[in-house]
Design a protein around this nucleic acid. Sequence first.
DNA 1: GATCTGACCACCG
DNA 2: CCGGTGGCCAGAT
Length: 115
Amino acid sequence: MASPFYAQVYALVRQIPPGKVMTYGQIAWLLDKPQGARAVGWALHQLTPEMDVPWQRVINAQGKCSTFLQLSSDYTQQERLEREGVLFDEKGVTDLQQYQWHPPNALIDAILNNV
DNA sequence: GATCTGACCACCG
DNA sequence: CCGGTGGCCAGAT
């Protein structure tokens, strides 16, 4: 990992429970980079399916999938989330108020301390 | 070391 | 409501 920031992003994303989602900006903010949303996008862009990170649970601040590129399999990001119980409307928008996950502070602290 | 680019976000018209 | 613009961060060239 070139930067601990990447590892932190991955560690946090792995903790997102099924049926929940987080936004890029939220992740960046939790990792003490309030303006680092784009960096989070980069971290996820570097991911591979073999890394076993549920990147599909990370969406943009508008409640939509950032990309509809099929990156790894037969299903789109949205279809994967729908399987987990995250429902989208006809515009591909989900209700962040309902599905957004707020990790416990202890977890954030552990990740920031590189545990 | 400088410049470009990107799976973003907030703001403004 | 939708599209354009600026800004921040990290990686790639």
